[in-house]
Nucleic acid binder design. Structure first.
Length: 658
RNA sequence: GCCGACGUAGCUCAGCUGGUAGAGCACUUCACUCGUAAUGAAGGGGUCCCCGGUUCGAUUCCGGGCGUCGGCUCCA
């Protein structure tokens, strides 16, 4: 008896019955057999997707197979190695800390982690890493095989109960329950265990043949993480690490992280004197002149774009009677995260968002269907009492402003308005070369409004996205408490994802505030409310933008577009004239006429990342010219003053909207 | 909020086992008048995060708080 499998190049391979993936690799070549990590198997019958399996498992007859090695394309080899590394980490920790309870340890983007529950009184910090790494290295060096064993649920459960591995027992019970609940599957009868050296873990697999494939690894950080991501359950200790097939790749990865840290907006914000943070007001930026310039440019851009789209700007109060927040529903859900003040006998709340104010303002006037959509925009100041542990530079703050707007429209206008909001957001991001990721967030558990309302609202957002052929991720249960939303996300220098823009559909707020307009039928109708922002908060957007550009902003946005550097103070008068010419063209230019050497002036301007340095000395003064040096490029030749001014004015203009 | 680490001059950091602190950069002044990434000299600058405790004496040890960093939870 024999079996036949098909290789990726279309050739077939005949193997004895019961042959494994390892046998297939060996049949192809000894080099491949040594390098093989796992095998991708596509079943002959059934339309199931390819499955990555251990090399040791027998191959089904007629399968299409592909041997995976460390050099295979895609993320799979790294994921496999990192998952192996997570098991090796657990092995070492179990040996070093008797009584520790293990939970889960997956591969993640950039590495892996394993969550542990250490015995009472034991706490782990980075200082313990070298001892753990040493044990890990011993296991990797030993090249211990990963052995898979499929055992009955009862057997596995007994085993982990006996070992007091409560988290594993809970995982098994959940697997059984989920299988039963899914309906279309048979009840769960077996689970797989993987053993490497002294360590056995409940694990779906696959794994590489031995621990030796973890060529290079490093433990990176330790952090708390709630069991099952649930803040009501115990907090476990998570150890993060990363692993690669070899040392060089690990080294390269670590250097990449170091370089990314150079782009950190908190570091650049300080170095470029854009903003300042202080204990005196946690979570609130002090904006220095350069940063304020950028901030104001963005606000101006938003105003222009809004005006072009028939938005009207309004101003609403910062502090409101609690009654407003009770009406909107925020008092019930977000009271803990609001700043409140006692004013005489009244309890007041500082606004964490503009919507209730805008709803109230809409209600204060009579509206005809003829004026709809009414679009109120307001870069209003907001305060949210964010938990101390979540604050993060400009990206998560307590005090901020949004490029916020609320659209009040008829049911029929909703799709058009949502589409237009998305377009405006895309247009905005295009000006900054940002690629955002879309997410559709649907009804959360804690919500207001009927199911019919949610069906309708989610349906509308989905249809706008689908009609435009936009790619998006579905985020079930992540909507606002009053309606579903489309969020636009962007990542920071270290790959962490942050929400920028949002478009939220809201049938609930108009109901709660009893908003209405008079229809053509002379009867009162309920408008629909759309909440939207493109930048999101100006603070966060600037933070993301600093990291995106590494502090080298586009010319139209940069705080200082040009600096005039005098070679010595004999040329300060001419320098001042050049400076004045630039300023009269509306350019943001500075004059450095200090008695310092030209070398020093250049160095300082380079460090400040000023794009154009105009150097003036004897030659330039005589010829009425300037010598240009571009940031990071160097000497760019000599130009007549008229020529230079015209060129700069042209290049520094804001790019035309697409 | 939770877990862990950290908190010394504007910034980056040093400071052995407890005896009230130091460097470089930045800043000020003076000299230098300079050609594409640092001229030299002198000087000023510190409630060593805050509040308690131990001690003859605390930046150092202990407790509590606050803040920051990395995660987790949360994010209207």
């Amino acid at each position: 008896m024999s079996l036949t499998v098909t290789l990726p190049d279309g050739n077939t391979l005949e193997l004895p019955d019961g042959a494994s993936g390892a046998d297939a690799a060996a049949a192809i070549g000894a080099g491949l057999a040594r390098a093989a990590l796992a095998i991708e198997v596509t079943h002959p019958e059934g339309a199931e997707a390819a499955e990555l399996r251990d090399l040791a498992r027998p191959l089904p007859d007629g399968a299409h197979i592909a041997i995976l090695t460390a050099k295979s394309a895609g993320e799979e080899p790294l994921r496999l190695i990192r998952h192996d590394a997570a098991h090796v980490l657990a092995t070492a920790v179990m040996e070093l800390y008797p009584g520790v309870k293990i939970s889960i340890g997956p591969a993640i983007e950039g590495g892996f982690y394993y969550d542990f529950d250490f015995p009472e009184g034991v706490s782990i910090s980075a200082e313990d890493f070298s001892a753990i790494e040493e044990r890990m290295r011993a296991h990797v060096k030993a090249g211990e095989p990963f052995a898979r064993e499929d055992v009955s649920v009862a057997h596995a459960r007994e085993r982990f109960v006996a070992e007091r591995q409560d988290y594993k027992v809970e995982l098994i019970d959940d697997l059984v329950r989920d299988a039963a609940a899914s309906g279309n599957h048979e009840p769960l009868e077996t689970v797989s265990l993987y053993t490497n050296g002294p360590f056995t873990d409940l694990c779906r697999g696959p794994h590489a043949p031995t621990t030796a494939t973890v060529g290079a690894f490093k433990l990176q950080s330790v952090a708390g993480a709630y069991w099952r991501g649930d803040s009501t359950r115990p907090m476990l200790t998570r150890i993060y690490g990363t692993a690669f097939p070899n040392k060089a790749q690990l080294q390269e990865h670590l250097e990449l992280i170091e370089r990314a840290k150079e782009r950190d907006h908190r570091k650049l914000g300080r170095e470029l004197a854009l903003f300042h943070f202080s204990d005196i007001s946690p979570g609130a930026a002090f904006w220095l002149p350069a940063g304020t310039g950028i901030y104001n440019s963005l606000v101006a851009l938003s105003r222009e774009m809004n005006t072009a789209r028939d938005y009207t700007e309004v101003k609403t109060p910062l502090i409101y009677d609690a009654e407003l927040w009770k009406t909107s529903g925020h008092w019930g859900k977000y009271r803990e995260n609001m700043f409140t003040v006692q004013v005489e006998e009244r309890e007041m709340g500082v606004k964490p968002m503009n919507c209730p104010g805008h709803a109230y303002l809409f209600k204060s006037q009579r509206h005809s269907y003829r004026e709809l959509p009414v679009r109120y925009s307001e870069p209003g100041l907001l305060h949210r009492n964010e938990a101390s542990g979540v604050l993060h530079g400009l990206l998560r703050v307590r005090h901020f402003a949004q490029d916020d707007a609320h659209i009040f429209c008829t049911e029929e206008q909703v799709q058009q308005e949502v589409a237009s909001c998305l377009e405006q957001a895309f247009e905005t991001y295009a000006m900054f070369d940002l690629d955002v990721r879309l997410e559709l967030s649907t009804r959360p558990e804690q919500r207001i409004g009927s199911d019919e309302m949610w069906d309708r609202a989610e349906g509308k957002l989905t249809s706008v996205l689908d009609e435009r052929g936009l790619e998006y991720e579905l985020n079930p249960g992540d909507g606002a408490f009053y309606g579903p939303k489309i969020d636009m996300h962007m990542t920071d220098s270290l790959g962490r994802s942050w929400q920028l823009g949002t478009v939220q559909l809201d049938y609930s707020m108009p109901e709660r505030f009893d908003l209405s307009y008079t229809g053509a039928d002379n009867a009162e109708h309920r408008p629909v409310m759309i909440h939207r922002a493109a930048f999101g908060s100006y603070e966060r957007f600037i933070g993301i933008m600093i990291e995106h550009y590494g502090g080298e902003f586009p010319l139209w946005l940069t705080p200082q577009q040009a600096i005039v550097l005098t070679v010595s103070d004999r040329f300060n008068e001419y320098g001042a004239r050049v400076h004045e010419r630039l300023r009269s063209q509306g350019l943001r230019a500075e004059l450095d006429d200090r008695g310092e050497s030209i070398g020093r002036k250049i160095r300082e301007a380079e460090l400040r990342k000023i794009p154009y340095m105009l150097i003036v000395g004897e030659r330039e003064q005589e010829q009425g010219s300037v010598s240009l040096r571009r940031h990071r490029v160097g000497d760019a030749g000599s130009f007549s003053l008229d020529e230079m001014v015209a060129q700069l004015a042209g290049e520094c203009a804001r790019p035309a909207k697409p």
